[in-house]
Design a binder for these strands. Structure first.
Length: 131
DNA sequence: CGATTCTTTCCTGATT
DNA sequence: TAATCAGGAAAGAATC
């Protein structure tokens, strides 16, 4: 019954993007491994931004030249960070607090737009080919 | 062990 | 209204 099988969600939550899909298990020979090994939050974000395979639309460059990026899926980002730190209580609210502390150290610079951040002078390794 | 740095948790209030 | 943003404060974790 209930003929209203009106599909599932269009946006479907991204609980886990890579896996359960027809994604070949062996695509990227180089790096990969469903977890980026970066000790610090900003490095984790940077590496995620630099590896589309793991990113799955969670982060997106707004201006690659200037290092401006946007958090597209805040909840998903928090979950990934939580996985990395083995903390399932992580939320975007808490993650963003840590991100705001980076403004003081120059790792990030403030951008007056929701969910948008920019790498600062003290952040490195995000540029196409710095130097 | 103590100090420092980074992150997490919580909170109140403002803004979108 | 629900999300986000702003920071202060304090606790926790990892390092040196």
């Amino acid at each position: 019954t209930s003929p209203t099988a009106v599909t599932h969600s269009i946006a479907d939550d991204d609980s886990n993007c890579l896996k359960t899909s027809g994604v070949r298990s062996q695509d990227c020979p180089s790096h990969s491994r469903t977890s980026l090994q970066s000790s610090h939050l900003w490095e984790f974000v940077r590496d995620l931004l630099l590896s589309p395979e793991e990113n799955c639309g969670i982060l997106e460059w707004e201006d690659r030249e200037q290092g401006i990026f946007r958090v597209v899926k805040s909840e998903a980002l928090a979950k990934m960070w939580g996985q990395r730190k083995k903390n399932d209580r992580m939320t975007y609210e808490k993650l963003s607090r840590a991100l705001r502390y980076y403004y003081k150290t120059g790792i990030l610079e403030r951008v007056d737009r929701r969910l948008v951040y920019k790498f600062g002078k003290n952040a490195h390794g995000w540029q196409e080919d710095k130097l």
